[in-house]
Nucleic acid binder design. Structure first.
Length: 626
DNA sequence: CTAGGGTTAG
């Protein structure tokens, strides 16, 4: 074949001529504009009109099949490629390999590579196959191709790196990633912007935030994508404050944010409860026409939901023209988070009716909403439907939801039977859910078993030690408390203070236990004094001094209490008082908040790690352990 | 062949 002999499309005048035929010009245009479905139907009309495709028609059409993940159309095209006899053309070869990879058929891609002897000489073919292995998380295959291309004397370039580096984005392969980084520095391909950006992402995804940051700091010129890599890396690692800080730095260094930046910033606002900052981001979104970006909309939903503004979250959701599965998930989760399970379940039905196939994540939202609202049987029914109707394989996160579902309902025995009957081995979350149930239902015996198991899986998770210690406290088991304390000391836990946040006038105010650094410290402590003496007055004549032992201790330095005092101090009359607290579970502060809500004549809202608790007159609207 | 993105219980 004349085309194959030259080995390059551009240098071959015959192929160059192909590029300018009307069909091919149009095919290329459509592919560039991401109009993939249109490009495939154009290819079909071309065949119908009697024109035959050539080495220039295939790559663009194959690219469309890859983008839409249409393996059947791709295979048909492969057949046509063979009929026309241009399978040796590099451009066609790489498009075929890439198409099969993007459809998840890596073995077929490999066959194309192996059946064409010239591929082992062509860098682009190695690049296509390596990035395909990476995308399908076939680490060892990607690595062996990488080795093979070096053995064959084919030079590695930056595109090879871009295809290979992301395979190391899991902690297990960080070592490999580091050696690649070293290799790039030695071979001088590290000067390439894109390669460095991909290394930043790799470090961040492995949780090696410091390494990613160091690389970022060392880069003399930082582009938009460089900033985004480090900002989204911080966001994915839960460093929300740092995200906001970097976002400010980015703007002041003259780089303007794009939708990718704003998505991470919004997500961080959601975690911090920073509604005002989130609203400013929304203004930027509107001013720049990013509203049509579904990633941005989904992040906005989650931001408003987690800031307590359900109406706005729903407003954003309603105007998304084509809702993605993630949009539905975020909105359903939002109702669950606010205790409106029925609305959430209705929305779930709407989603099914609109033809969106549920995934494991939506089921996590729905199941956890059911368990928090005491809809045990509904939850179990949904778990069953998940397997039987939707053919989804439950993961450990679903099993732990079911244990939570049964456990919260007081069906601790059934929960244990369920764990024994699980087809997969229980993990930390499963035992943790059982431990949580024991806390609610004061089951010390099962708690000790669950605790023993849970710390095998997660020995460094302080939360479980605190939980076990609280269970012993409830049963007045002084020896148990002491035992847990010794374990904590042996494992070297420092008494890390939990912190609470309150957003006020566009600023997030962070409080640590015993904190005196806040500019309103004096007023906050004065308010705390006032609240506490009012609380003490009512504790005498209420039912809170019963078996639950709901008596306030004098550990008044806790972050929740400081945050509550600050929120009451600065709250605007007529509005809800919102306090966001962090993970740390403190019984004493629960009691305090309950009591304060009796004094304050407004709705008092507390957001813990994942949901909202609405208090009025000392009663919480949800059926949770509050 | 090609660097950065949304949802997720305890």
């Amino acid at each position: 074949m004349a085309v194959a002999a030259t080995g390059s499309l551009v240098r071959n005048s015959a192929v160059a001529a192909m590029a300018s035929t009307p069909w091919n010009v149009r095919l290329r245009e459509l592919a560039y504009q991401s109009l993939f479905a249109e490009s495939i139907s154009l290819y079909r009309s071309m065949l119908r009109s009697g024109s035959s495709p050539d080495a220039f028609s295939f790559p663009f059409t194959l690219k469309s099949c890859a983008a839409l993940s249409l393996p059947v159309s791709g295979q048909q095209l492969h057949g046509n490629v063979i009929r026309v006899g241009c399978e040796a053309e590099p451009f066609v070869l790489t498009s075929l390999i890439s198409m099969y990879c993007k459809c998840g058929l890596v073995e077929d891609a490999r066959k194309v590579f192996d059946e064409n002897p010239q591929s082992s000489q062509l860098r682009v073919c190695y690049n296509a196959l390596i990035s395909g292995y990476t995308a399908n998380s076939k680490v060892s295959d990607a690595a062996s191709m990488f080795r093979r291309m070096k053995e064959m004397g084919v030079n590695v370039d930056s595109v090879t790196m871009l295809g290979f580096v992301p395979v190391c984005s899991v902690p297990d392969y960080l070592r490999l990633g580091k050696s690649l980084h070293g290799q790039c520095v030695r071979e001088g391909i590290d000067s390439e912007f894109s390669v460095l950006n991909s290394f930043i992402t790799m470090y961040m995804k492995c949780g090696s935030v410091e390494s990613g940051r160091r690389l970022f700091d060392e880069m003399p010129v930082k582009g938009l994508i460089t900033w985004n890599a480090v900002i989204s890396g911080y966001s994915q690692n839960g460093l929300a404050h740092e995200v906001l800080e970097l976002y400010e730095k980015m703007k002041s260094s003259g780089v303007y944010p794009d939708p990718v930046t704003l998505v991470s910033v919004l997500s961080s606002c959601a975690h911090l409860g920073a509604q005002r900052i989130g609203q400013e981001v929304e203004k930027i979104v509107e001013a720049n026409g990013f509203v049509s970006n579904v990633f941005v909309s989904n992040a906005l939903i989650s931001m408003y939901a987690r800031c307590g503004n359900l109406a706005k979250a729903r407003g954003v959701f309603d105007v998304i023209p084509v809702k993605s599965l993630v949009s539905w998930t975020a909105m359903i989760g939002c109702y669950g988070m606010h205790g409106l399970v029925e609305t959430g379940l209705e929305l779930f039905d709407d989603m099914i009716r609109s033809g969106v196939r549920p995934d494991g994540t939506v089921f996590v939202m729905v199941l956890s909403a059911c368990s928090h609202s005491g809809m045990t049987d509904k939850g179990l029914e949904l778990f069953d439907a998940m397997k039987r109707v939707y053919k989804l394989e439950p993961g450990p996160e679903h099993y732990s939801c079911v244990v939570d579902l049964l456990g919260r309902a007081g069906r601790v025995g059934e929960a244990m039977e369920f764990i024994e009957s699980m087809p997969v081995e229980a993990d930390g979350a499963v035992w943790g859910a059982l431990l949580g149930a024991c806390k609610i239902h004061r089951n010390v015996g099962v708690a000790e078993l669950a605790f023993k198991k849970v710390i095998e899986f997660e020995p460094m998770n302080v939360g479980y030690y605190v939980l076990m210690s609280n269970i012993y406290t409830d049963s007045r088991n002084q020896e148990g408390i002491w035992r847990v304390r010794v374990m904590m000391r042996e494992r070297g836990f420092r008494k890390e203070p939990g912190y609470s946040y309150v957003e006020h006038e566009g600023r997030v105010h962070l409080f640590l236990a015993g904190d005196r650094s806040h500019e309103q410290t004096e007023e906050v402590y004065r308010m705390l004094d006032e609240l506490e003496s009012s609380v003490m007055e009512i504790t005498g004549d209420t039912d809170c001094d019963r078996d639950g032992g709901e008596v306030l201790s004098s550990r008044r330095e806790h972050s929740e209490r400081l945050a509550v005092a600050f929120a009451v101090l600065n709250s605007v009359p007529g509005t809800e008082i919102l306090v966001i607290k962090n993970l740390r579970v403190c019984e004493d502060c629960h009691v305090f908040i309950k009591m304060v809500s009796k004094i304050v004549d407004r709705r008092f809202v507390v957001r813990d790690a994942s949901r909202f608790h609405y208090f009025k007159d000392g009663v919480c609207s949800c059926k949770d352990y509050w």
